[in-house]
């Protein structure tokens, strides 16, 4: 169990560092890149929550989250290119 606390600590530090770039990042693209990294971390975190609460069905949440994150990144890219 202590192992899981260590993992959660590392993930929390990562999210904190990513959020720093998300808040500061000079341009919109920097923020989008930070958001992309954060969604990957969040996907892993959702799977970890599913494991800890022993609910298989929570994996679907992680799957849908990953799909929506991809659609979101593509939408941001289209917007920056002026195609939206």
């Amino acid at each position: 169990m202590i192992f899981m606390y260590i993992i959660m600590g590392i993930l929390a530090i990562s999210i904190f560092l990513g959020a720093y770039r998300l808040l500061k990042g000079p341009s919109a693209s920097d923020r989008a890149v930070a958001l992309d990294a954060l969604t990957n971390i969040t996907t892993a975190l959702l799977v970890l929550i599913a494991y800890l609460s022993e609910r298989f069905i929570y994996l679907d949440v992680a799957l849908v989250y990953a799909i929506l994150a991809f659609v979101g990144v593509i939408a941001i890219a289209r917007y920056l290119e002026g195609g939206l």
Partner: peptide, 13 residues
């Protein structure tokens, strides 16, 4: 895997 996340965000900074 979690160490790679940490590395990625350090690189981001």
């Amino acid at each position: 895997g979690s160490l790679f996340f940490l590395l990625g965000t350090i690189g981001l900074i």
